[in-house]
Design a protein around this nucleic acid. Structure first.
Lengths: 166, 166
DNA sequence: CCACCACCGGAGCGCGCGCTCCGGTTTTCA
DNA sequence: TGAAAACCGGAGCGCGCGCTCCGGTGGTGG
């Protein structure tokens, strides 16, 4: 499991299964007894990634200003994509990642809550709807899809956030 | 050539070569006598796509207001990505597309010119540099990487543009 | 009319992938 | 202690890819 997450993070979801097995120090048979398919391995890795993201989500939901919380959460999600190339592939071009609906909701629902609160509080422009969030998340993720210092992609996501502000 | 461009546009760069040959009504041998490798086919298709984009580029460079020209050109480039899935893969996650430096410059140089002019004219925020353009282009492209009516991705790119405005 | 030749189609190659399955090894318990 | 059971490793499969190469075919000149 640890080997799989490291491999996905470094090389992306396209990495060969036998490399993961080698890295874990086990054979293919052992790996496939724990995970019936590569997809199940990917799902498990993504679920763990989301669990690790949960504290950031909860923290953002508890922020004093909902707009600040929204910005904070969006940046946290992009940071997760920077650290994990596999995670970023899931949210990228639709179809390649095949993220499950359940996990997708875990990402989008908190953003939706904060968006509505921020709009009500007057911090966010009101011509945005929940359906815009996937696109916003993709745009933010795209900012980080290139090597560079962290302050660079933070600045680029900031440009987008400036466009979302009231 | 026409078959290749249609195939790349509809199915992406990952499409199998023999499907392109079938579509063109020729055999593999004939295809490979004109193009020594799949990559050369991709390069040729991209070059044609850029040629088609040239009028938009020239038009944007001649715009009365450089900021309007910048916005117009960015939207044109995103529109090209919407129509051509292969083109969008080139500008996407680095490494997968392997766009040549020469062609990359053809895209970025006009944007850079307009950016500098717009900044001088006071239409664009001045804390942006030429090195930010690839990220901006990627972010704009990400807005369109999902099925939806054109006015939807135009609006999303508009959000980003609002964040770039002075 | 026919020998020649430039040209073309598609079967077949090597490769790397996800996945399976069988032989060997370790553990368990009467 | 020894047989049975549980477990594990990695060679091997089927597949689809990019690419090659040879047998066949239609056009041409004497």
């Amino acid at each position: 499991m640890r080997a799989a997450r490291l491999s996905f993070a470094e090389r992306g979801l396209g990495i060969a299964v036998h490399l993961i097995a080698d890295r874990a120090g086990v054979g293919m048979g052992t790996l496939y007894r724990h995970f019936p398919s590569k997809q199940s391995l990917i799902d498990a890795a993504l679920a763990q990634r989301l669990d690790e993201l949960q504290p950031s989500i909860d923290g953002a939901l508890r922020a004093a200003d909902p707009w600040d919380g929204f910005a904070e959460l969006l940046l946290a999600m992009v940071a997760a994509q920077v650290q994990d190339r596999g995670f970023s592939q899931m949210l990228g071009p639709s179809g390649t990642g095949a993220i499950s609906d359940q996990l997708r909701v875990r990402l989008l629902r908190p953003l939706e809550r904060l968006m509505l609160q921020a709009q009500a509080a007057g911090g966010m422009r009101t011509d945005l709807i929940a359906g815009d969030l996937p696109a916003i998340l993709r745009m933010a993720g795209a900012a980080a899809q290139h090597a560079g210092p962290p302050q660079n992609w933070r600045r680029h996501v900031g440009l987008l956030l400036d466009g979302l502000q009231a």
